[in-house]
Design a binder for these strands. Structure first.
Length: 463
RNA sequence: UCCCCGAUAGCUCAAUGGUAGAGCGAGCGGCUGUUAACCGCUAGGUUCUAGGUUCGAGUCCUAGUCGGGGAGCCA
């Protein structure tokens, strides 16, 4: 059948049009006067369309007993609504009941549910206003990510999900193995012999596509990866997942300032795209979830990001008139309370913090001329905190190798990575943007587990 | 992993150590061009689990499980 999207019927079709709607019943209001009102949703938009079914329908008795969650196909005429609340409604000439939903057991009721409850019903929660809206916004963000980079001629690169490099330095890794856990092969020393494993060595799920994507950047120009990422950290917070999606652009013949400019343009593009294309959904979030979302998004999209050296930030924090749980000190990483103070109190807009102490950052970040800081950059936004982490990469072979040594890593594991510096090295830079944190920011959703379809977190891998 | 808080009807929540309730949802009836409609009636409970204190525990104590918030790690 050729379906009429409810969004089209509501927004752009003329009275008198014949429509064929298909979707799920949200609420039913039956009058004993011989007609029923069905509120129908098909996911194409936030709104439901009102279907008027009367007793002239041959199966009217069944229609009048529809309940929340039933699926139906409705054919009829789009007519002007005589009552307040909607421009148009559908006068049904046929209501085909496709699937019933037993009201005694169907978990989604036309009432408020907590997000904690709906997380246990993740397969059905997209039938609610909130999760339908989250899904549409997430889709819009993903489309905008590709648009932004494609329109700037960045090459989309698929970096591997499974990686054999066992020390990328970005957190705990999930091991990938086909060995028998009960009886793993052992080396003469009694260690598990991973040389007999599937890949002939230890392998893991990736924590970042950055090192691999640098190889494409250093031959094909500006590139980006966009895919799933895995961290085995025991993080139990509303901002962390064990499986999440990350966007990682890499730009060549570019330095940290170029990187920061790209990050700012990128975020503004994404926020503007959501405001322009998901108006109904964002309006819903602004009304029901976080009353500041639209103001914040608009403000961020229209204002210049602050650029601030780590060293200056520490000075600002030390002079601030407030008590810290952790007093700021040069050489320590900034605490969440510090980051939020800078972006929410001091500047009231996104802040790009740059040039962190080398001792607290990974080996691949470029050492600055002062010898004690690296060309790192974090973009901080209100409420979420760090949404982007990036850096200019160390392109000088000797400096890179000494940094690898200093962090007690094995140079031979990075032979291909250092080759990029050995042959035709170029200055380059990049960053990582957490997709879910971005969706959190634009929707105001407080818990990251509610902006990904099936969240994976410690002790939580249902569905 | 650490700190704090929580777990009672399908859902959202009440209940001084003394007979476990309400709203919503569901079923039935009434009413109505209705808007998460409205009115009435009915059904619906191992108060997370295991111990303990007490004449008596949803309530107090101990341990555990699960969930939420904060912190750390980070995107």
């Amino acid at each position: 059948m050729k379906r009429t999207r409810i969004k089209d019927a509501l927004e752009s079709m003329d009275v008198g049009a014949e429509v064929a709607l298909a979707g799920w019943v949200r609420t039913v209001r039956t009058s004993k006067g011989g007609f029923s009102f069905l509120a129908l949703n098909d996911g194409s938009c936030m709104a439901t369309i009102q279907v008027v079914a009367d007793s002239a329908l041959p199966n009217y008795d069944a229609v009048a007993h529809l309940t929340t969650g039933c699926s139906v196909i409705v054919r009829g005429e789009l007519v002007a609504s005589p009552a307040k609340g909607q421009r148009v409604e559908v006068k049904a000439t046929e209501v085909q009941v496709v699937g019933l939903a037993d009201a005694d057991t169907y978990p989604i009721q036309p009432k408020h549910h907590t997000f904690e409850f709906l997380r246990q019903q993740a397969h059905l929660r997209t039938r609610t206003n909130t999760f339908g809206a989250v899904a549409r916004v997430r889709n819009a963000v993903c489309a905008a990510i590709h648009e932004f980079f494609q329109s700037r001629h960045f090459l989309y690169v698929h970096t591997p999900i499974i990686t054999a490099s066992d020390c990328e330095g970005a957190g705990q890794l999930f091991r990938v193995t086909t060995l028998d856990h009960a009886q793993p092969p052992r080396t003469p020393e009694g260690q598990i012999d991973y040389s007999q494993d599937f890949f002939g060595r230890s392998s893991y799920l990736t924590v970042s596509g950055q090192l691999e994507v640098e190889t494409y950047a250093c031959s094909l120009g500006n590139v980006y990866t966009f895919g799933p990422t895995f961290r085995a950290e025991n993080s139990n917070t509303p901002r962390h997942l064990a499986e999440f999606w990350m966007v990682e652009p890499e730009i060549v013949f570019a330095d940290l300032a170029d990187d920061a400019d790209l990050a700012e343009q990128f975020l503004k593009f994404l926020f503007r795209a959501v405001l322009d294309r998901c108006g109904q959904d964002v309006a819903f979030f602004n009304e029901r979830i976080d009353k500041t979302v639209i103001d914040t998004l608009t403000h961020v999209a229209d204002s210049d990001f602050v650029r601030l050296d780590y060293t200056e930030a520490v000075e600002i924090l030390q002079k601030a008139d407030r008590q810290w749980d952790y007093p700021p000190a040069w050489g320590n990483d900034l605490q969440t309370e510090h980051e939020r103070f800078l972006t929410e109190q001091t500047f009231k807009k996104p802040v790009i913090l740059m040039n962190y102490p080398a001792s607290i950052k990974p080996f691949y970040m470029r050492l600055n001329d002062d010898g004690r800081t690296v060309a790192a950059m974090d973009v901080l936004v209100p409420k979420i905190g760090e949404i982007i982490g990036g850096s200019q990469r160390e392109e000088r072979l000797d400096v890179l190798e000494s940094r690898i040594d200093a962090q007690h890593m094995r140079k031979e594991d990075y032979w291909w990575y250092t080759d990029l510096r050995r042959y035709g090295t170029v200055p380059h830079a990049g960053f990582g943007l957490g997709l879910e944190r971005t969706v959190q920011f634009v929707t105001g959703m407080a818990n990251i587990r509610d902006v990904i379809p099936f969240p994976r977190a410690p002790r939580s891998a249902d569905f």
